[in-house]
Design a protein around this nucleic acid. Structure first.
Lengths: 210, 210
DNA sequence: GTCTATATCTCGATAGAC
DNA sequence: GTCTATCGAGATATAGAC
């Protein structure tokens, strides 16, 4: 269930399943495709994970536990507001760039009512005040009360920063379909994006003199 | 096929299908559920739309043609940069708020390789320079070259503004699961968000004196 | 643990009455 | 145009050999 030690075979299955689930969704995913991608047969998947539902659940937890933890790390380091902000943005974009399928996997789950996410939320995100969503809220709340940024609802800031990061990856295929020339500039755009988002958020939230 | 005049029954089916497709995806959607939701039987759906694929395609076009057109309208009005920017943000958030399932419907389609979107793109978005994505790019390009905002890649700005708008609706359930108190503040947060995004984008992109 | 072969079942699609 | 009943494809899941 909650064990984090997987054998090689299990890892192969989990990775293949992640790809299949994130491109085709929980229902659209095919056990046969997962088996093919992992280089083994369907029966073996059932041997390890019993059924499709449990496989989905394991993949979900396996992936997002790590994802939220790595995201949270950047917020626990010392540094002033712009330094931590920058570290968070860079880490987030790098994480997403390494696995562009992740946001869709999460968003899909959420749009289906987030049954698995809700059921296993305590294993996935750190609900404590020392966990990822709270630390980010706190970062903005502190900067807001110290006057480093103007008075802002930290939740709005949180949505803004996560939205601008995620949407690049989630929405890229839409724009690449409309403007094929973007396809080649992808890597360059990701790097450029780090600075763009930092400036947008930092200077967008800074107090104005006028 | 491309006719926009649907009977009452067809409308009922389309609306039910939109909900089903956006929450469960193209494969996950069940014809039985669509029929139930629309208050009629499966056979009738086949009578009108032949099969699931065509139904999906009709729903997709039916919904997004209108969506992109209504979004584009705000960019064709006269006004200076902040005025048009504000109008666009307000319209976008209102559109999304009226139908929070839309972004996921589009993002799902895209994550599956956007077969329908690509095939029928000419009916859905206005590819002409007078259409929605180009007008928005142009808005930023103009403001950039006139010095009203600092030198910025218009594509980055486009992603930022759309991302911050969409993610509020796409990601809201995640945060509502973590912080249940948000659920009651939803409408208030949407309104607050209009100002938040405008300020973030406008002041985030404005030239700085320092 | 890993495979092949097969049973079981879900769901899209059709036939045909009204 | 709308319905009930049913077929058949395709997918999950299992049995059982190795």
């Amino acid at each position: 269930m909650s064990t984090n030690t997987f054998s090689d075979t299990e890892h192969q299955i989990l990775e293949a399943a992640l790809l299949e689930f994130s491109t085709h969704g929980r229902q659209g995913a095919r056990m046969q495709c997962i088996a093919d991608r992992a280089g083994l047969n369907k029966a073996l998947i059932h041997y390890y994970f019993r059924n499709k539902e449990r496989l989905y659940e394991e993949v979900f937890r396996y992936v997002f536990q790590r994802y939220f933890r790595r995201l949270g790390e950047t917020l626990r380091r010392d540094g002033d507001f712009p330094t931590v902000l920058r570290a968070f943005i860079n880490r987030y974009l790098d994480l997403l760039n390494e696995n562009p399928a992740l946001p869709m996997f999460l968003l899909r789950e959420v749009s289906e009512g987030a049954p698995v996410f809700s059921r296993r939320i305590s294993e996935i995100v750190e609900i404590s005040p020392d966990g990822m969503p709270y630390l980010l809220l706190q970062l903005f709340a502190k900067a807001s009360s110290s006057g480093e940024i103007r008075h802002t609802d930290p939740f709005q800031a949180l949505i803004s920063i996560m939205g601008t990061c995620i949407y690049f990856f989630a929405g890229f295929p839409i724009f690449a379909a409309l403007m094929p020339e973007l396809q080649d500039r992808r890597e360059e755009l990701v790097e450029q994006r780090k600075e763009h988002i930092f400036e947008l958020v930092y200077y967008g939230l800074k107090p104005r003199t006028e």
